[in-house]
Nucleic acid binder design. Structure first.
Lengths: 142, 142
DNA sequence: ATGATCCGCCGAACACCATTCGGCATAAAG
DNA sequence: CTTTATGCCGAATGGTGTTCGGCGGATCAT
């Protein structure tokens, strides 16, 4: 039941409690209580507006693999998250150390990002994958 | 001005128009009009709840690189997006063809996903990157 | 089996917010 | 100067979020 509710909210968080209640065969206050609990438990991390990268002037999306010597979330690496063009930073297992997802205004801006990445001490190399087309992009589902 | 507003909404879409208006030195109806235009123009693609993967029983996140022969968004490839564990599908330029972002319940489930991917005709190989830790994960920003 | 406790749900009520409307100011166009 | 369009504001209203009290079913101990 909670899973259905999470599925609804993950798809469109502007639904009213009444509308969700109809789909779940519940009353509005019942839905409200469940949502409140889900927020408190952390299952719902937040409610945000999904922006269109192109419409906000950032048509270029790319994944960047970073190879570093040693292992450590250096302050320099974590500080790059202040750059709003960086959307994701993951430490991964595989033939690279860190995967970044970035969204920027141009290839020139991407070069600027790469410049900054090479300021991080211990950086060995990067490998970039420019996305040509996005077929699917959504958050965690049910 | 619209950029500030988008920044606010991308961070927390539960803010009331009055609250946003105070931060932007605008009245509530003025904010409302701007938001309505931004939605109509497509800059705001939607308003959704951000779910916590771990809390919804999907603690394992991974990126999968797919190499295929030829080039084509085959119906088989696009049909895998019905699997809610698949969060993103991007065609990319680089030393692979397609990058997937998946979030699932276990390594066993990841193997199941890989099995399905190999049903796609023309699939040559995959390479998986299991994320060990996520330092940052957000949508398109200002 | 009986009683107590807890949990989740409902209906009603209230306060707040989203939304609309009319009007005003500014700026660009005729 | 007149006209038009745009963006904003204040007030009003319809709808929604939110709270409250009470009800019914489930669980457990006596």
């Amino acid at each position: 039941m909670d899973r259905k509710l999470l599925g609804l909210l993950a798809g469109d968080a502007t639904l009213s409690y009444k509308e969700m209640g109809e789909q779940l065969h519940l009353s509005a206050p019942a839905v409200h209580e469940r949502v409140k609990k889900l927020k408190k438990s952390g299952a719902i991390a937040g409610t945000v507006a999904r922006l269109d990268g192109t419409a906000v002037g950032r048509p270029l999306c790319a994944f960047i693999h970073m190879d570093t010597e040693g292992w450590g979330k250096s302050p320099e690496l974590l500080s790059i998250q202040e750059d709003s063009r960086i959307e994701e930073i993951h430490a991964v297992a595989g033939d690279t150390c860190v995967i970044l997802k970035v969204r920027c205004e141009s290839t020139k801006a991407l070069e600027d990002i790469l410049h900054r990445l090479y300021q991080v001490p211990g950086m060995i190399r990067t490998q970039s994958y420019i996305v040509l087309n996005t077929y699917l992009e959504r958050g965690p589902g049910v």
